[in-house]
Nucleic acid binder design. Structure first.
Lengths: 165, 165
DNA sequence: GTTATTGCAAACCATTTGCAAGTGT
DNA sequence: ACACTTGCAAATGGTTTGCAATAAC
């Protein structure tokens, strides 16, 4: 897998965001920069609540309000930095869409965990089929539902996230 | 396309629902029957609001409350009669999952329209890839985003649903 | 200096839920 | 009779928004 080669990150996420904002006559504020940096500081999936926690848990003056986080995520979506992955329990889950190779997800119905997988053939097939119908594809979202390996082994059953509430 | 052959509808949706309900110690009430019949009276995608309208527009005494519709849709989902297709504008869109061949969707970003397509090879490929990772697949959801044929022709541009508000 | 942006709190809105009255088996 | 269901209205909860103060360019 030469996924790493696909990274091709010539411009930092913050720069990419700035570029997008200019085209819209908008501004790269301190708050937006803080959010982009926090979001791209690791590759995990996250929801808005988790991000707000990460940001408000800081003891420096880099706190950002919840409303601004929502507004920024939506702008980063339009900018092509992020994409919505799934919506397991009523809240939108996000992941990096910039500098991260294309992939899809398996969603375990037992534990709620998301697993990534990548396959070029699927993408090629999707492109072929949809373009044959005159559709100009820009992206796709594929979620496979079922039971993950860990949850299939009764003795080592994972805790359901839902039960942790 | 021998999709029709795949219909294989030996049992009516209402019967199928009853069967599911018994296994759960639940009852096929008059309201649930009304809802299943209305839902399966045509093949279009629908959201809860549209269904509630269809049901409350009736002049016979087959009206059902919104709460009951929500409860029934969720039960029909578990029963395998319906599935959630997408969530274009914050509201869940449903479609038949029983007696209707497996397929995926193209979502036009310009007009918001959903288009169905079917391809066995994709399903086979998905099965192969996910099972190789120990995942026991039960279903999947594939949405391809882009621009539909009609919206690609500027002169005959479709109206954006979003602009109709 | 203008115009976009932030933070707060209130508003939104699809969906869920508690409860008393009603209904299926 | 005994659950299970319904309908209503109220609650929920993630997300959006109006507005006055603030900051980017």
């Amino acid at each position: 897998m030469s996924d790493i080669a696909a990274l091709d990150k010539t411009v930092s996420p913050v720069e990419k965001f700035r570029e997008y904002l200019v085209t819209k006559g908008q501004r790269l504020t301190r708050e937006r920069e803080i959010i982009v940096e926090e979001v791209f500081s690791d590759h995990e999936h996250f929801d808005t609540d988790q991000l707000v926690d990460r940001l408000s848990g800081r003891n420096d003056k880099r706190r950002v309000s919840r409303a601004t986080v929502y507004r920024a995520l939506s702008a980063m979506d339009e900018a092509g930095l992020l994409r919505k992955v799934a919506r397991p329990n009523g809240r939108e889950v996000w992941e990096h869409d910039y500098g991260y190779p294309q992939h899809d997800h398996m969603v375990c119905s037992a534990c709620g965990e998301l697993f990534e997988f990548h396959n070029d053939e699927i993408s090629r097939l999707i492109e072929k089929i949809t373009s044959a119908q005159g559709f100009l594809r820009t992206s796709h979202r594929l979620e496979v539902y079922g039971t993950c390996e860990a949850c299939r082994r009764p003795q080592k059953r994972r805790l359901r996230k839902l039960d942790l509430i």
